[in-house]
Structures are given as C-alpha cells and as structure tokens.
Design a protein around this nucleic acid. Structure first.
Ligand SMILES: [Zn+2]
Ligand SMILES: [Zn+2]
Ligand SMILES: [Zn+2]
Ligand SMILES: [Zn+2]
Lengths: 148, 148
DNA sequence: GTTGACTCTAGACCTTACTCTAAGGTTTAT
DNA sequence: ATAAACCTTAGAGTAAGGTCTAGAGTCAAC
C-alpha cells in the first residue's frame, strides 16, 4: 500500500502479457522496476507501467526489442547524448514508420478491393483471389526491382 | 529460353532475399514453381515472381508466414470455399490492418513530436525522451486496460 | 495452521523465420 | 577441359521472443 505500485501479476493482467514476458523484458534491459517488497516481489510504478505500454505499442508497429531498447535508452543516456544524435536517431525511425504506413495502406487497399469485389454469397468463390486483385489494379506489388 | 522464367538466383536477386529463403517458402507451401529445367533447376514464372513480391509485402506489414499462407490459399482453394468464407476472412484481416495503421500513426505522431521538440544541436539532450513526449501529450499509451 | 493464490530464481524448451554446411551435379567462359 | 559460377538435396545451426518447469518462499483466508 506504499503507493500505486503493481505486482507482476497485476501489471501482466493489465498489459495482456505473461509474467514471464515482463521478467524477460527486465532481463533484457527494457524494464527495470526499482522497488521490491520485503519478500522480494517486484513492485511496478506507474512509470514502469507506462514503459510496458510503450514497449507493446512499439512492438505492434514493428520495432524489434532491440530497437525499442534504443528508443527507451534515450531516457537513460540523454545527458550523454547530444540533441543532434537524438534527432538523427528519431528521424531515422520516422522514415521507417512512414514507409511501413505506406505499405500498410497499399495492403489495406488490396484487401478492401478484394472485399468489395466479393459478393459474400455462399456460392463457390471462383472469382476471389488476393493475387487476382493485385494483378488487376496491380501497382506496388510487381516492382521487384523496388526491393532493397 | 522457354519463356520469361527466372532461375532461383535471379529471382532472389530481384526480390532481395536469399535463395535459401525462396526454397524455405516453397518447403512451407507459400510458393510452388511448377517448372524445372532438365537439370532440375527451379524455373519461376512471372506469376511466381508476383507471389514472392506479395509475400514480402505482406510480411512487411506484419503478417506471419502462416497468415500469408492463408491469404494465398484463397487462390488454391477458391472453388472449395464460398464467397462468404472469403469475405469474412478478408474483412478480419482488414480490421487487423486498420488497427495497425492507427497504431503506426500514433507512433509516428510521438516520434514527430519528439523530433520537432528536439533542437538538434550538440548540447546534451537533457530534454529529449520518447517517454516524456508520450506522457506530455500522452494519449493512447496509457490505456493499459485497452490491451487485449 | 494449512490450503490456495501469488511470487521468486535458474535454466530448459519452444516457435518462427531463416541461414549455413556438406557433398555433389550443371553451365559458361576461356 | 577445367575453372568459376550456378544449381540440387538433406539436415544442422542460429537469433528473436518468448514459454514452461522445478523447487521454494510469501500472503490471505478459512
Ligand atoms: Zn467472392
Ligand atoms: Zn461471389
Ligand atoms: Zn534534443
Ligand atoms: Zn536540444
């Protein structure tokens, strides 16, 4: 009842991950709750909870744990790094995110086109293929040369 | 010189993946080039190439190989499946993609805010933290209850 | 005062998606 | 006709991100 701290099971429940996952993140330096109960139980502060939330969010948008580690490290190392470094790093990530958004948008369009074209009835779906849609209005997906 | 077929190294080069990766996809049913040269070399048709392109695109937007397999399977099984099935499946994926786009958009905003706030100079970056930004205009990232 | 829910550590194990190795056959160029 | 570059298979190895197990302490409640 110290403060508004959470034990591992509570935070895991709220965040929708396992306790093991939280310990795993800690072991890999993404998380580092400062408090322990007398019995040695981890006690997570609201800031810790926010951190978890950020990790999961970043993961869902496609960052690896290593990248997330670097993003979070801005907090810890910020007086060892210059603003120049920070800005360069963040702007790099921004480019990545923008590219992913564009690709997602294309995928969305393809799926939407397929969905629209499909009558949704219960006859055999002889006319329904993702690849057919892609080749029909086939932009973006054929540019093999565009690959990195 | 049959047609415009590609050997594995050529397709791998164009697609920006390894030959092993193409064979791996084949082994796992995502790809299945019909032709072989007399010597037993795989010969990929333009349709195969398109398929590869789709796989990579789908992967980049966050689908697993299993999910991609299912998307591609629409082609193969389409006269065993009803339009109803296809539409349900695709609409499900659409929801996923839309959610990811939204989350990416939020991440983009956070990074953009951080980038804007950062002067980019070479003094210590004491004021530059992703978590600070998130807590400052902190929507979306605190809703632990919103987790699945 | 013990049952049941919760937590701890250390370490083995798992899945996904490749990546590499070994041992060999093919094609092209000189 | 032989090297260099390409392809084949089967199977082992790797990295990321967990997940599970064992063995033990803790805490609330009946
Ligand atoms: Zn249909
Ligand atoms: Zn139909
Ligand atoms: Zn700055
Ligand atoms: Zn600055």
């Amino acid at each position: 009842m110290d403060e508004k701290t959470l034990r591992i099971g509570q935070l895991a429940g709220l965040a929708g991950v396992s306790q093991d996952t939280l310990r795993f993140y800690e072991k890999h330096g993404l998380l580092n709750p400062q408090l322990r109960s007398e019995a040695g139980y981890r006690l997570y502060s609201p800031a810790d909870a926010q951190r978890v939330s950020f990790i999961l969010s970043a993961k869902r948008v496609g960052f690896t744990l290593n990248e997330i580690h670097d993003l979070l490290a801005l907090e810890v190392t910020r007086d060892e790094k210059s603003c120049e470094d920070v800005k360069r790093f963040v702007d790099e990530k921004l480019i990545t995110v923008n590219q992913r958004i564009q690709e997602m948008q294309r995928m969305k369009n393809s799926l939407q086109t397929l969905s629209n074209a499909c009558c949704g009835g219960d006859e055999p779906a002889t006319h329904c293929t993702i690849l057919e849609v892609l080749s029909a209005h086939g932009d973006a997906e054929l540019n093999l040369q565009g690959a990195v």
